[in-house]
Design a protein around this nucleic acid. Structure first.
Length: 885
RNA sequence: GCCGGGGUGGCGAAAUUGGUAUACGCACUAGACUCAAAAUCUAGCGGGAGCAAUCCCAUGUCGGUUCGAUUCCGACCUCCGGCACCA
């Protein structure tokens, strides 16, 4: 054993040995209980960042912990390797996206290996490889057969100059991010997955997840799905060319969640894209036409986040009849009504809806209160109009509503909906905010959608035996124009699988990368299957995922899509459960200190600034080295542009992977933000060095440790054993509740106790050796999830066996309650709830014994002398509280 | 605006879910070792009073429940995150 702890030497040794022995490779084993530990797969950008390190350190600790408990652990990794950055690199630097991606994977894989993460590398997958995306296409075809994949026209952000589609981010501010040209909306035929079919189930399924998923994630998903209960009501329209589904009725259908307020409706407001506008456009006055164009133009512009638009609209001259009271209402167009939600038309009830109120105020439309607070019903029924200061949106009691007067909102909603249904002008309905999932991307670097267009046969799916539809080697990457694939004739031109005519064309759009990540963790269970996405037996054994770990930024999109995908797979009879992930852990961001100037909002690297701190670390002044100008300091998410990131590789090189990992897990609870402080890693290194030194000091003496537990232990040895077993107990409890920081603290405490146990090596008796040996082996096994390299090394030294911790079948120690219990307890004694003294008592002491001990204590006597003891509260082995007057 | 989660030393954070508030670590201070430094070890480290034993105050603020509140209840202040014309 080396005198000193050389992290790099030990780490390289064990990384090699693990790889050689396939230590972390797993197979289906029905005799063992399985545990599937999954971390969100990385995008191969080329460099690992600290967020990755944190994510994987958590997963790795849990994997080790479960392995050491005897579970058969699946802990895989792969690459979310399709997507924008590769294509951007191709556009900007002219590199081939495939080569760029493969190079990045090689680099990042090495980085992961240098961290010593316990992945089963034989199961590595990458989304951009044909053997993987073949099954994206396979699933697409299945979805299409089930009616879950369909094509429809939708509006996309479109740059007319570059002739290309833009994401919302690329179109921010209403201009193209490349050329600055004004962005337009364009109709484009796009493929969708019918996730809305599962809206209700996605909502209901959350009940099963309540225990294992963070509440904030569930509420975000709930909000996203946005279920609301209400009713559609039809308002007959006079003098309109407009025709709806039922050609006999000419009416506008509105959606409302407050049918109880319908007597307060003063108008109907429709969206700019509503069919009635198009149908009657020619008949509108010029003024109306201009206004409509204006509103449409305004809506064309992509909106900036958080921007509130002033209400606008115009009376288009049509009249609609309120079916409840036959009142004739004007029809308006309004910029605040969205075509995508409900039916694209609302009844405007200003008295009871804030938006309608604002609209009515602006255009001076009548505001009529029809819901009243219960205690004001009588008054309101007497008065005709009431000057409302703001909309009254609460539920209440109906007034000015004819037959329905006096009913509560709740009752009225139910009964009025039934009435509408009976009369045939409405129906109860549930709408969702959730939209179908658009998966078409006009991009090269994604899985081609396996559809062929034939002039004779139309839209033809690629037959399963012709999958995968492979991406060509390359394409013209200009960043302008339509999908790059459209300009690769060898790809586009094909034979129709149905009629075998030669002038068929392939779909040139590729799939959203969220498709790849919706099912990748099923693929890990059987990653080399060439016929099916996975073998049902493998999936049945390994899935669902027991613990998923990742950033909260995926709370909605990825985690909702993958839940949808699982339900669809269930309906394909590929899996037997509804929810793919039992427990979800959302980790916090890794943040660092960044330096910036306010006016220019430019950031400076650390070596270009002078930071003066007081001796407690508080910043006194921060200036730029160059010209002494003052700068500002903030703690923000690590990023290259802010120069506040640290490179994991540098950290591993300087401090060692074990130290980096231990610090990452120790410094903060996993769901909190983690402030990166290099002095903190020093602490982790010191701890590991102390462990190493301790073993170095004892290991030869420990060769004489008795095999059988001796009968006699000195008081100090008993204390050490007590601490050992208490620590074991604590750490097991912590891991079960997903706490990763406190076990490290517990291990540090244990080591402190071990160091406090002062026995001369050559004077150590059997009991001492046994106690030390027990403490040290327990410490090592419990530290393994955090710092596996050093623990393997120390285990090898102590056991003089090279087989390694897992192969030796070592298990996490189990606490012995007998030893965990103290011989003597220090019981705090309070007088009137204030701590006044402590007494020593046996853990078995009865309540009255404790009372007597407390009352006999000198310090307590001082506080009770001459006072009347009202009562004494004894919490067994916890505390005594004496209440005096 | 709506929804959700937080506020504990100089800092990251603990606290058996109503029972010794500040474990563990960082930073800092003093001492030992050293020619010196680093490393290591020892001690101290919420605020205030006192030579001291000890006492008072302190978990965002103010109230309440309780023998006892960081924990439960009410009001407020404040920070962070999500959503945003969803009818």
């Amino acid at each position: 054993m080396d005198e000193k702890y050389y992290a790099q030497k030990i780490e390289q040794k064990w990384q090699k040995r693990w790889a050689k022995n396939g230590t972390f490779e797993t197979n289906v084993d029905e005799t063992k209980e399985k545990f599937y530990c999954l971390e969100m797969l990385p995008y191969p950008s080329g460099r690992l960042h600290m967020g990755h390190v944190r994510n994987y350190s958590i997963g790795d600790a849990l994997s080790w912990y479960k392995r050491l408990q005897g579970f058969n652990v699946l802990h895989p990794i792969g690459w979310d390797s399709f997507g924008q950055p590769a294509e951007q690199a191709a556009i900007k630097k002219g590199v081939n996206p495939r080569e760029w991606t493969e190079d990045n994977i090689v680099q990042m894989r090495e980085q992961l290996q240098r961290l010593g993460l316990s992945y089963d590398w034989s199961r590595e997958i990458a989304a951009h490889r044909p053997e993987y995306y073949k099954f994206d296409q396979w699933f697409f075809l299945k979805m299409r057969e089930m009616g879950l994949a369909y094509k429809k026209m939708t509006k996309v952000n479109w740059c007319p100059k570059d002739q290309t589609t833009l994401s919302n981010e690329q179109a921010s501010g209403g201009v193209c991010w490349r050329c600055g040209h004004a962005v337009e909306k364009k109709d484009l035929a796009q493929w969708f997955f019918r996730i809305t079919d599962y809206a209700e189930e996605l909502l209901e399924g959350m009940e099963q997840l309540e225990d294992g998923w963070a509440e904030r994630v569930l509420t975000m998903q709930k909000h996203w799905i946005g279920r609301s209960e209400g009713a559609f009501v039809e308002f007959k329209v006079q003098s309109s060319k407009f025709k709806v589904e039922d050609e006999n009725s000419e009416s506008i259908k509105v959606f409302t969640t407050r049918i109880d307020t319908i007597y307060g409706a003063n108008s109907i407001v429709v969206a700019a894209e509503h069919p009635i506008i198009k149908a009657n456009f020619d008949d509108f006055s010029d003024e109306v036409k201009t206004k409509i164009e204006e509103i449409r133009a305004e809506l064309q512009k992509p909106k900036d986040y958080g921007e509130e638009i002033e209400k606008d609209g115009i009376d288009i001259g049509l009249k609609a009849i309120n079916p409840f009271n036959n009142e004739e209402l004007p029809v308006w167009i309004g910029n605040y009504v969205m075509m995508e939600y409900g039916s694209g038309a609302v009844m405007s009830v200003p008295a009871h809806d804030e938006r309608d109120f604002e609209f009515a105020k602006k255009f001076d439309l009548p505001i009529r209160q029809v819901i009243s607070e219960p205690h004001l019903v009588h008054e309101h029924q007497q008065m005709q109009a009431l000057a409302l200061e703001q909309a009254f949106t609460e539920k209440g009691v109906l007034v000015h509503s004819d037959f329905w007067n006096g009913k509560t909102s709740e009752d009225a909603k139910k009964e009025m909906t039934e009435f509408a249904e009976k009369q045939g002008f409405g129906e109860g309905a549930i709408t969702y905010r959730l939209r179908d999932w658009g998966i078409s991307r006009q991009r090269f670097w994604g899985a081609p959608i396996p559809i062929i267009y034939c002039d004779s046969c139309g839209e033809v799916p690629v037959p399963y035996d012709q999958l995968p539809v492979e991406l060509p080697e390359s394409a013209p990457f200009t960043g302008v124009g339509e999908s790059p694939l459209a300009r690769v004739p060898e790809f586009v031109n094909t034979v129709c699988p149905k009629c075998e005519k030669e002038d068929a064309r392939r779909e040139t759009d590729t799939m959203d990368t969220f498709v790849d990540s919706s099912w990748y963790y099923f693929r890990y269970t059987d990653p080399h299957n060439e016929i099916l996405p996975f073998d049902p037996n493998a999936v049945n054994y390994w899935t669902p995922v027991d613990q998923y770990i990742g950033g909260v930024d995926h709370a909605v999109m990825h985690l909702l899509y993958t839940r949808f995908w699982t339900k669809a797979m269930r309906d394909m009879e590929l899996v037997k459960f509804d929810e793919p992930v039992k427990k979800l852990l959302t980790q916090g961001m890794v943040v660092g200190e960044s330096y910036y100037s306010d006016e220019h909002s430019t950031y400076f690297p650390e070596d270009s600034v002078n930071i003066k701190r007081d001796d407690r670390g508080k910043i006194l002044s921060a200036t730029l080295k160059e010209d002494d100008s003052p700068i500002k300091v903030a703690v923000e998410k690590m990023s290259k542009s802010k120069y506040n990131g640290v490179d994991p590789d540098d950290m591993v090189l300087i401090y060692g992977a074990d130290a980096v990992r231990i610090f990452t897990l120790f410094a903060a609870p996993v769901e909190n933000e983690l402030v990166w402080q290099e002095t903190g890693i020093d602490g982790a290194v010191r701890f590991l060095q102390r462990v190493y030194r301790y073993v170095n000091n004892w290991y030869s003496a420990l060769k004489n440790t008795p095999k059988v537990e001796p009968d006699e232990f000195s008081p100090d040895a008993r204390k050490l054993r007590q601490k050992t077993h208490q620590t074991i107990k604590r750490i097991n409890e912590n891991f079960e509740t997903g706490q990763f920081n406190t076990p490290v603290a517990a291990l540090m405490e244990l080591l402190n106790s071990m160091n406090d146990f002062k026995v001369e090596l050559n004077a150590a008796n059997e009991g001492d050796l046994f106690a030390v040996n027990e403490a040290i082996k327990s410490l090592i096994l419990m530290l393994t999830p955090y710092a596996p390299h050093i623990c393997e090394e120390l285990w090898e030294i102590l056991t003089t066996s090279e087989e390694g911790i897992l192969a030796s079948n070592a298990r996490l120690p189990i606490a012995d309650e007998h030893w965990a219990k103290a011989d003597e307890l220090e019981i705090p004694v309070q007088v009137n709830g204030k701590l006044r003294s402590r007494v020593l008592a046996s853990p078995e002491a009865t309540n009255s014994e404790l009372e007597n001990l407390a009352l006999a204590d000198d310090k307590i006597k001082e506080h009770t002398n001459g006072k009347q003891i009202v009562k004494i509260i004894v919490v067994p082995s916890r505390l005594v509280n004496i209440v005096v007057k």
